[in-house]
Amino acid sequence: MSQQYQPPFSITPAIVTHVGKISEAVGRLTILREQTISLRLRRINRVRTIRGSLAIEGNTLTEAQVTAILDGKRVIAPPREVQEVRNALAAYERFDDWNPGAEKDLLEAHRILMSGLIDEAGTYRHGGVGVMEGPHVIHMAPPADRVPALMGDLFHWLATSDAHPLIASSVFHYEFEFIHPFADGNGRMGRLWQSLVLARWNTLFADLPVENLVFEHQSEYYQALQESTQKTDCSPFIEFMLTMIFDAVVTSAPQVTPPVTPQVGQLLMVMDGEMSREALQDLLRLQDRKSFRARYLRPALADEFIEMTIPDKPNSPLQRYQITEKGRQWLQLRRER
């Protein structure tokens, strides 16, 4: 194994910006996730993840059909596509058990993911393979006899790199697709392993449907892979994947429950520090004190978007109101949308 192996990538300003934005969004979503995310939402995102990753490879089953298979129901569809879904469900069940730095775990994941679909499930390929775009070969992978050494180098780099996990996971994904170590299933394995690397950085990535967004931008995904190969620098692919990850983080933020009414939303948007009822009412240009309390102030207090500065004396003439962390999270998510 080469101790000097270094995947070719450069850190562009766009990559730095993406990493910063994602890190901030992840922090906010982690707080919301701990408060409101449910097993049902995780299940929905897992279904979207599997459907998206398999759809990129040509699987035609819908989210409803994937859900039905998950529930053990019979689905009328091509047997191979049903098997692909069953395998993916079984693989993602083991998601929390695998170590992204362990090559044996990657081989085991491939065995489960491709069981009954190819003869070489769980082993590196023994023949040549290329990436096709229609009738054209757009990438010829390295010879099969080089695959074990190349994958060993890649895992060694992952274990020793000090690159941010957002960058390291994207580099690993690109290098994995360049090596194309398996006879089939390379795309779904590369996406699975990037999610696994990210989940070891922050567990919320185990529930984010990044693959579903990649499917929606499939042509850009392949274009980023090809551009990176042509440049001998995978920064275009890193930038693309970080964009997908950021979108997944932002769009997967759970709805604040109960929903924010237009009136509460208006109240939150004018708040600045500690404010009196009169000041808030004036800023909103509302004349009716009773209506303001009933439609704006009380709902915001009840749902903990704002709080009193003197909670044990609600009627104090010195009473002021300030926004809570929950209210700030709502405002931030609203700006990003």
Rank of each mutant, 00 (worst) to 15 (best):
Q6D: 09
S10G: 10
P13I: 08
H18Y: 15
V19W: 04
G20N: 11
V26E: 10
R28Q: 09
T36Q: 09
L39S: 10
N45C: 09
N45F: 14
R46A: 03
I50N: 02
S53F: 01
A55R: 03
I56A: 01
E57H: 05
E57L: 07
E63S: 03
Q65P: 12
V66T: 11
A68I: 10
I69N: 03
G72H: 09
R74Q: 13
P78T: 07
P78C: 00
P78I: 10
P78K: 07
R86G: 07
N87G: 11
L89D: 06
L89N: 05
A90Q: 14
R94D: 09
F95Y: 12
A102T: 12
K104Y: 01
L107F: 07
E108M: 13
A109N: 02
I112P: 08
G116H: 07
I118Y: 02
I118E: 03
H126F: 01
G127V: 14
G128R: 07
G134A: 05
V137N: 02
I138K: 04
M140T: 15
R146Q: 14
R146C: 03
R146T: 14
P148W: 04
P148E: 03
M151Y: 01
L154W: 05
L158S: 02
P165H: 02
I167Q: 03
I167C: 02
I167E: 06
H180W: 08
H180I: 11
P181C: 01
A183L: 15
G187L: 11
G190H: 02
R191K: 01
R191L: 05
R191V: 09
Q194R: 13
L198N: 05
A199I: 10
T203K: 06
A206Q: 13
P209D: 02
V210F: 05
L213G: 03
F215Y: 12
H217I: 07
Y222R: 05
Y222E: 08
A224K: 07
E227C: 04
S228L: 13
T229H: 12
I238W: 04
I238A: 04
E239S: 14
E239D: 15
F240A: 06
D247T: 15
A248R: 06
A248H: 08
V249G: 04
T251H: 05
T251R: 12
S252M: 09
Q255C: 02
P258T: 10
P258E: 06
T261N: 04
T261L: 12
L268R: 03
M269F: 08
E274L: 13
E274I: 09
E274S: 10
E278Q: 13
Q281N: 01
Q287R: 11
Q287E: 13
R289T: 15
K290Y: 06
S291V: 15
R298L: 12
P299F: 05
D303P: 01
E304T: 10
F305H: 14
P311C: 00
K313C: 01
S316R: 04
Q319M: 13
Q322C: 10
Q322A: 12
I323A: 00
I323K: 00
E325T: 10
G327D: 08
R328P: 00
Q329M: 13
Q329D: 15
L331I: 15
R334W: 06
E336R: 09
R337F: 06
